[in-house]
Amino acid sequence: MTTRTNPTPPFDDIVSSRAFARLLRSRRAFIVPATLFFLAYYFALPVLTGYWPEFMGQKVFGHFSLAYLFALSQFPMAWIVAGLYLYAAAGFDRQAARILQDSGVAPQEDSAE
């Protein structure tokens, strides 16, 4: 196994490789829908409570208003999205390590600076 072959890693070759395209695709396939989801879920809260306070103020569970429960639900929502990302990112790490290995550059090569 080579640890440092090229002084300048072959960036263009890596970018045009199929494995790298697959890494970018799988990152995008997680990050774009996850970001759209959490933004939509989060902004639903200020929009709904801001424009329909009576609707959101109705009691749905004991003393709790719909608004308050929805606000509380944002906490587990954030934790769950973060957890799912941790799981998905472990896969991205494996793909990235393989790409660097296949292109003959060590994963921790010195910075060009």
Binding site: I31, A34, T35, F38, Y42, L45, P46, T49, S65, A67, Y68, A71, Q74, F75, M77, A78, V81, A82, Y85
Partner: peptide, 21 residues
Amino acid sequence: GYDGFMYSVGFLVAYLTVLLI
């Protein structure tokens, strides 16, 4: 009351932007 709690919610969910992007 509730309106103040909106800050708390935003301060946490903001970390998803940090984490994902």
